[in-house]
Amino acid sequence: MGCGDKEEKMPERRKFLFDMVRGLGAATVGGLAWTGVLDGKKVYATILRPPGAVPEQEFLATCTKCGLCVEACPFKVLLLAKSGDERPVGTPYFQMRENPCRMCRDIPCTVSCPTGALSPLLVSNSDEQGRARLNVNLTKIGLAVIDRETCIAYWGIQCDACYRACPLIDKAITVEYTKNERTGKHAMLAPVVHSKHCTGCGICEHACVTKKASIFVLPRELAMGESSDRYIRGWDNADEERMQGLSDETTTKTPRSEKSPLDYLNKGDL
């Protein structure tokens, strides 16, 4: 290459470039493997986070795994995932069947979080002066779900363990009285969970008498559906409000939707 003093300089510059390219290459190889490993950390759909946890993806990013929430828990209920626990390592979680959340009024776990992964604002409402006040009943750890096939109350056997245990009795869990059609003369006292009030504290799951709990807490994203915009409970004024601001443009596109609905009904080729 070149001539004269250029030859003296080139090897050094070239070595530098080679080093950069090699470093970049190695970093890319390592980075791809690393990304692959981390990608697997994101899918723990059933994990139950402490009160006031921000949405899971944000939580995984902002939790520094310091364990201050776990230390703050006066009932030693919150656990810090160890490597090998099949949960995102170092992050806090509940095991409701073993030890449910006791719903402390001062929510020490949430308040202790130094990074904002647990946000007190998510479990507060404002008082008369407009100041935020902690309200543990706003907690949404998850939602209790009942397996009606194994719940003995749904068999017709009298059991109200979960109902009685619920800290928001008659709000989060109510009992529905119906006639036991099988015997014709007994009542069924079936527990029903109401998502508006259920905090996911897991005390019902802990109290359930069946071998494996027939009422159990799942993260809300997992346990709940979402109603579509096009179905409105016309008999409910509050629900009518959901119609505000909706576009009337149809989004369903099938071969049938291209024809006019009138044609479709009148032509007889159903």
Partner: peptide
């Protein structure tokens, strides 16, 4: 790329 603090994991 992952939205996670990579080394901490």
């Amino acid at each position: 790329a992952t939205g996670l603090a990579a080394f901490e994991w």
